[in-house]
Design a protein around this nucleic acid. Structure first.
Lengths: 249, 249
DNA sequence: CAATCCCGTTGATCCCGGTCAACCGGGTGG
DNA sequence: CCACCCGGTTGACCGGGATCAACGGGATTG
């Protein structure tokens, strides 16, 4: 560091936040771009920010200024109702976008909390919009990301509105496994970053029910659980559980 | 019509779909625009489309090509899961935007069905994106609409995940009343466009429970119900019901 | 105008998941 | 390194809402 001149330092900083160099590029940005096009996106990210486990990236009610892409780590988003009840509305991992709830009212509605030491790329929203106007593939991509968040939420509504507890938990495990696979992790063995209480809140059931269902799934030979460690033994079985129509009307 | 020359006819068609002349402008479009700016948005809408009660605007799985703004009428959106279960994911009225679920995968995920004879403005999505790139206030507005849909969905997740049946129904009535007020209708007296079954699906409960709760609210003097006709007598009471934390942990 | 069917209401019973409680084990912080 | 505390598991019991069933009335359709 001591022997570096100013331009070299600038380059180094540049590299540190260059999307074109990021191995999560395929998750965050539009695909099929050439090097030139990619470079034009390199000033999308202003800085990076580390968030320690248990700390929050932003709180509900806070003014909105930027979107965040998870570089590594794990987050939960929570919504607090007027009377203080807290609902977990989602879990987010590497390559996923946070903060889109804030655009509508220039103020975040939910709180984003790190469930393990994490790092995010900070993308000032004004910059996102400006680059979207100038760069059609980015606009397209950004709209897709927003839309997919809507679709994801509707999926959760279906989960909560029309499925039984065991179906919901099975769906949760299958979904988690899929997302981890996309990121190159094992599909069958992983460590839960959240507590039983947080899973329960997300799935609309009590922590005791989550615990009991984990035990039941284990008895049925579909999974192996030890605390936060989960091994999936029969993903087809889980899929069967989550799809079983309980009331044949 | 017989005596009209071609240009005059064109003007008439133009007027028919001109956003600048629409009385729902404040609900659909960014506010605070001057006449010139408004005129530049007039080719956002290609045509209008009437949908008869019971018919669908689009179906889940269908290719996505346009967004739709409700001009008048009432819609429900439904999601059908793999095993055929149907979940109502939302109700939409005049001035609200439909079809945003389709952007993410170029294919609609939910089905939109008219619950009364309705009409929508058809906005080809390519045109929406093009105008968004050229016209910053529209871009801003469009992003806000997308974000608000996310926030709305998260609100429903909280409803379904952490509230009891009576709280959910109270919240539903309060929300309906609010949205009708915004559109200049009576806040205290309205006709439900959907059946008990559809309300139940949306709120994650059975139609019998919806019916029983309506009766209970009526006994408690908070509402008056006769079939689809509802009169709200004590909105504060409903708000109290929807906010009551049932389990003081 | 009449017939039909769907929608809504209400009662009786049941069961899934919530509630309360006790215990245990492992990770964390002093 | 040890103690503490939080998170997880399991059991017993309870209750809200689902299920099953019967009936009634309005609105649509021919």
């Amino acid at each position: 560091m001591l022997s570096m001149n100013a331009p070299a330092l600038a380059t180094l900083t540049r590299l540190r936040t260059a999307c074109s160099q990021c191995n999560l590029r395929e998750l965050c940005l539009p695909v099929g771009l050439n090097a030139d096009e990619l470079n034009s996106l390199d000033n999308l990210v202003s800085t990076r920010r580390k968030i320690r486990r248990g700390d929050s990236l932003f709180y509900g009610g806070e003014p909105f200024s930027a979107l965040y892409a998870v570089r590594f780590g794990f987050f939960k988003s929570t919504l607090t109702s007027g009377d203080g009840r807290e609902q977990v509305t989602g879990f987010y991992m590497a390559g996923e976008l946070l903060g889109m709830d804030g655009i509508g009212a220039d103020r975040h509605t939910c709180t984003l909390t790190a469930l393990e030491d994490s790092e995010v790329c900070v993308m000032p929203f004004a910059r996102v919009e400006e680059l979207s106007r100038r760069f059609e593939p980015l606009q397209r991509h950004f709209h897709k990301v927003l839309s997919r968040e809507i679709v994801r939420d509707q999926g959760v509504m279906m989960l909560l509105g029309s499925m039984r507890a065991e179906e919901r938990l099975a769906a949760f495990l299958v979904n988690l496994s899929q997302r981890l696979t996309t990121r190159g992790f094992s599909a069958s063995e992983f460590v839960l970053r959240m507590t039983r209480d947080e899973i329960g809140s997300y799935l609309g059931m009590k922590l005791e029910t989550v615990s009991r269902l984990f035990s039941r799934f284990q008895e049925d030979g579909m999974i192996e659980v030890h605390q936060k460690h989960v091994r999936i033994l029969d993903i087809a079985g889980l899929r069967r559980v989550m799809a079983q129509a309980h009331s044949p009307n």
